[in-house]
Design a binder for these strands. Structure first.
Lengths: 317, 317
DNA sequence: ACAGGAAGTGAGTAATTGCTCATGAGCAAG
DNA sequence: CTTGCTCATGAGCAATTACTCACTTCCTGT
């Protein structure tokens, strides 16, 4: 077996070993025998299969506590879709759990035989979710990016979610060849008049569902870390009452979009209508509490994937 | 935590433990601490989550389909050994993939330090597999041909697998200096009484493993093309319900050896006992579907090396 | 051709996990 | 109240898995 192309051989073997281990339940010793390698090598392949994310694990059980929290959030904030995953108290990761749950929900949409327009924001959480997606053939769907992927310095942003998604999901995808923020409202109009951007804007308005990250503000905000926003601008925004941002759109503590000049410079696609589409936020963690609370309170998002601890904070707020 | 409804509590806990273990990657000790139970209980919950299928594991790699098909075939037809290689939709070859996989399996047997008796059939597929073998020193093994290599006209048959094998593998090899088919049952007895043939017959009965091709019937059957069988005889056989042949032995659509006079004229070594030995068929392709299905159904072979498309046909049949 | 480096390997060992067993709690029937 | 049953539990131990280290192989760039 497996003596063809050379490059993928190791991953193929890893896949085979991983399958035998996780799906077929064989021991690594057996796998080593079957594949004619040493036990240690078998172990390495199994662990490679895991670290290369060839093996996807998912929990298929509505945990009561999470279900209750989800139901509570749905009622309290009038959300369409809520998913709460168990908290991992020992972990400082801001994505573990959310990423898997987010991927599962994205996958659910992608499995629809009806053509769908999926809108995708950006950010670390969303990137982690998209990285969990299996490869799928979805020629019937279209996927549009809600935010530009160009940094202040003209380079492509790192958390370039739509391209990662295109790698896994075979569907037409529409990136936004723009910076997140234009220099002025006028410049934004010019940028938006480009035909490529027009397509994205039109698709964004038609989207059936949007998956977005929720950004907190402050000196350590993701927008600053990634170089989209300078510290002094950030300070101005928080002084003006900004509590968080989604795709660059700033909102205050009640979840109302900021009326100042800043949002007129945001070059992102407007969020799809909350009446017609699902706008699902993915976020968890202490630092996001304020931004999340504002977003659900003001109906910036009408769907939420978060963890138990964050959910309970939102319920007690 | 987790102390609400009573009935599902255990499964909920199992789900939570399973999530922490498989998704979050914590150890069972950590889970025990977090959930306030003993390590053993944590282990039980994790294992419960698995056995209750709360945790779904899946392999995201093209090889996944092959491994699943192989497992499916093994269960469905009670086969000892199944290998499924990816189909190459662009190729019309009846051997690509199979040959490499077959060679790897033969090699695995040859690497055994214990003396083995390997039996080899004939045919294009097997020839291609044997051509993939590296040169090996295997003085401990013996290799016996299951079928004669003499055509109707007295010439040596082209697909003379055992001699090709002897070129690569240094082991004692025992050809069958016979035609595939005797003129009558009596002639077969005479032929079989030759001492050289006796040796082959004896070895065939002792074989630890046999590798055989699977022949389809009909006007274009390999047996006809190679001049072992005339067209009118072939027509008689299909009328009598023959579905395929292995080493000349004809079997019907249920995989039962044909009882008519034809099989009494087949001069091949009888196939080794399916109870004691592995009889591994190598075949793929649309034209072999019927013959293969009959062979696995009736237990003519208990091992199979094929491709994905053929495997899925056998599973859907 | 050869030094340097990345990647793979097997051995050995520590850590983790799986299994069996003896025990005791909870409960229904007698 | 006792008996007999099921089921969960923790202990102890065996099996399995993960990791480290020293060594080899195979490139790569002089």
């Amino acid at each position: 077996m497996a003596r063809r192309g050379e490059a993928n051989n190791r991953l193929d073997d890893a896949a085979r070993a991983g399958w035998l281990y996780y799906v077929a339940g064989r021991t690594q010793d057996e796998i080593a025998t079957v594949m004619g390698i040493s036990r240690q090598s078998a172990q390495r392949l199994v662990s490679l299969a895991m670290s290369e994310r060839l093996i996807k694990v998912r929990l298929d059980h509505p945990i009561a506590a999470c279900l209750e929290a989800a139901a509570g959030l749905r009622d309290r904030y009038g959300l369409k879709h809520v998913e709460v995953v168990p908290s991992d108290p020992g972990s400082t990761s801001t994505t573990v759990g959310i990423a898997e749950a987010g991927a599962a929900e994205i996958e659910r949409w992608l499995k629809s035989p009806e053509p769908q327009v999926l809108a995708i924001g950006t950010g670390r959480t969303l990137k982690a979710a998209v990285d969990q997606l299996p490869t799928m053939e979805c020629p019937q769907h279209r996927i549009v990016s809600l935010t530009g992927n160009i940094g202040l310095d003209g380079s492509a942003a790192y958390y370039n979610v739509i391209f990662s998604m295109a790698d896994a999901v075979k569907a037409r995808h529409f990136p936004m060849p723009l910076p997140v923020l234009a220099a002025s409202a006028e410049e934004r109009e010019v940028l938006h008049s480009q035909s490529l951007v027009q397509v994205a804007l039109k698709l964004g308005a038609e989207a059936n569902v949007a998956f977005v990250g929720v950004g907190e503000l402050g000196p350590d905000a993701p927008l600053c870390q990634d170089g989209f926003l300078a510290q002094d601008e950030m300070a101005d925004l928080t002084r003006a009452g900004a509590a968080g941002e989604i795709c660059g759109w700033m909102f205050d503590h009640d979840g109302a979009l900021l009326s100042g000049s800043f949002n007129e410079r945001v070059a992102s696609v407007p969020l799809p209508s909350r009446d017609k589409a699902s706008v699902i936020g993915l976020a968890k963690g202490r630092r996001k509490y304020e931004a999340l609370r504002a977003a659900v309170k003001g109906g910036i998002i009408n769907g939420l994937i978060t963890d138990e601890a964050t959910a309970s904070h939102l319920l007690n707020a």
